[in-house]
Design a protein around this nucleic acid. Sequence first.
DNA 1: CATTGTGTTTAGTTGTTACTGAACATAATG
DNA 2: CATTATGTTCAGTAACAACTAAACACAATG
Lengths: 174, 174
Amino acid sequence: MNIDDGVMPLEPTETKGSWQQDSDQALDGIERFIEQMGVSSQEDGIPRIAGRILGYFIIYGGPVSFAQLADELQVSRGSVSTNARILTNFGFIERISKPGDRQDYYQLAQSPFLKLLEGYMEKMRRMQEIFKQADESIPVHMSATHERLNVMKRFYTLAVESNDQLLRQLRRSE
Amino acid sequence: MNIDDGVMPLEPTETKGSWQQDSDQALDGIERFIEQMGVSSQEDGIPRIAGRILGYFIIYGGPVSFAQLADELQVSRGSVSTNARILTNFGFIERISKPGDRQDYYQLAQSPFLKLLEGYMEKMRRMQEIFKQADESIPVHMSATHERLNVMKRFYTLAVESNDQLLRQLRRSE
DNA sequence: CATTGTGTTTAGTTGTTACTGAACATAATG
DNA sequence: CATTATGTTCAGTAACAACTAAACACAATG
């Protein structure tokens, strides 16, 4: 859980410098991973660049400066601005400042996947609510419909319970 | 094109006729639900119309004819065709035929949410694989990175396990 | 107080997706 | 065989999302 104790003003755990000397294959693996994170985040409805930034942080941990992000990922400052905000809102990364440095820095949050899971659960609860409302608003004599709605509601109830357990387990082992 | 009479052969659980006499409020609730299903499916990257069709089936169960779907949901036959196929591929609905009737009919699948859950798990396994590959392709000396990747991998492992348990529980109670 | 460095907002471009209407293919019916 | 009923495919369109570059706002610095 310790992201990178040191944080020493200017030394991220691993910087580009530290892998520049590695084989091209390693570099390919890293870039491949970052790109894959972009693609799969896009599949989930989160902008590709946000996913790539997240991938970058999973690899390098941070702190990494705003300008460095734009530079290394080859995207505009505008994109860094909006997509870093998206990730911050999700709670995946956090913005930090360094004394005597005007730049913004970001680093990976403590347990990004817990945030992810919490997000899923929120969605499930919303679905539960939709089914509940539907169940309440349709005429009693549509019994087959009520049955289906209740089956769906029950599914989400169990799913939330199950994931809540998982969440607790994960928090325990942090 | 007359639908209501043509449907005689078999008796869907609930037909439009059975709620036409209900209050507008009930109708509003149903339409609201169908629309909400459309919106939340869109949030999940599935076309709005597909979500509305699914909502329709959760309410009415089926069997419902192709033409009836187009008519009641006010969408083109083309849209019904492609979106019903999407839902069929997901395993949410299934196509059935009635003897002596040329029309296609669809009905809700047995346990649509099990399909949903299986879909989620597939996605999780893909993520697991991405982290595994990254872990393998990165130089050993990037230890903090390896640690982060392993934490992520472990998260997905536990999530898959947990959901697998849930899946079994749901299947048992079917 | 002008200049520079920094992040944000905005306007415009590009690419993507969902939908419709029409053409099409196919099978049943007269 | 012509006609009708039915579902699929395709071309075009409209709406939307993501990204960039440029304008902007603001704070620090000289």
